[in-house]
């Protein structure tokens, strides 16, 4: 087993373990931190899968953006309520059972040969440049729509917060 393979499995394990941690944790804040660990290990896996740009975006936008927003939300709600961050669980049995069943089903399908990697997988060369060009050419329409989506989300979030101002509880 070479070093690369070891690193690969290490991050896989970390991701899986932190995901399990989210499921088990009753503390929102700890769960958020575990998600951070999970996201970062996934980013590492992206790097190992020749997707450097996705990895960077994952770290910057996801870990840096989304998670910060979520943690901010946690802080805000706990500050407002003054209650501890403990979270209750419901229908654990059904959820875990259906989770296991779904996983078994998916794993069964994934074992199929169709998903086996070809013997000589070519490494993508100059991926960064291609991604850049793609945004401007083949993916220009989705790129624009993503812009509109961000705008709509912004308007939406702004509208919601302005409700809160208009109707103080």
């Amino acid at each position: 087993m070479n070093t690369l393979t070891f690193i690969f499995y290490f991050f896989m394990l970390t991701a899986a373990a932190s995901a399990t941690g989210i499921l088990l944790s009753r503390n929102v804040f700890k769960a958020a931190l575990m998600l951070l660990v999970c996201l970062l290990s996934i980013a590492a896996l992206y790097v190992l899968s020749f997707a450097e740009f996705v990895a960077i975006t994952q770290i910057l936008v996801y870990a840096g953006g989304v998670l910060v927003v979520i943690i901010f939300g946690i802080m805000l709600t706990s500050k407002l309520s003054g209650k501890p961050l403990q979270v209750g669980h419901t229908n654990i049995f059904a959820a875990v059972l259906s989770g296991i069943l779904l996983f078994a089903l998916l794993a069964n399908f994934i074992t199929d040969d169709v998903f086996a990697v070809p013997q000589h997988a070519v490494e993508t060369q100059g991926a960064l440049q291609t991604i850049g060009t793609n945004f401007m050419t083949a993916y220009s329409l989705p790129f624009e729509i993503a812009g509109i989506l961000l705008l709509a989300a912004l308007i939406g979030a702004a509208a919601i917060t302005s409700f809160m101002k208009s109707k103080k509880v």
Partner: peptide
């Protein structure tokens, strides 16, 4: 698929907010 995902999200995100437009 990407177009479907993006346009569906555009509809969804806007509808989430619209649905709550009753203050």
């Amino acid at each position: 698929f990407l177009m479907i995902f993006l346009s569906l999200e555009l509809i969804s995100l806007s509808s989430y907010v619209l649905a709550g437009y009753s203050f």
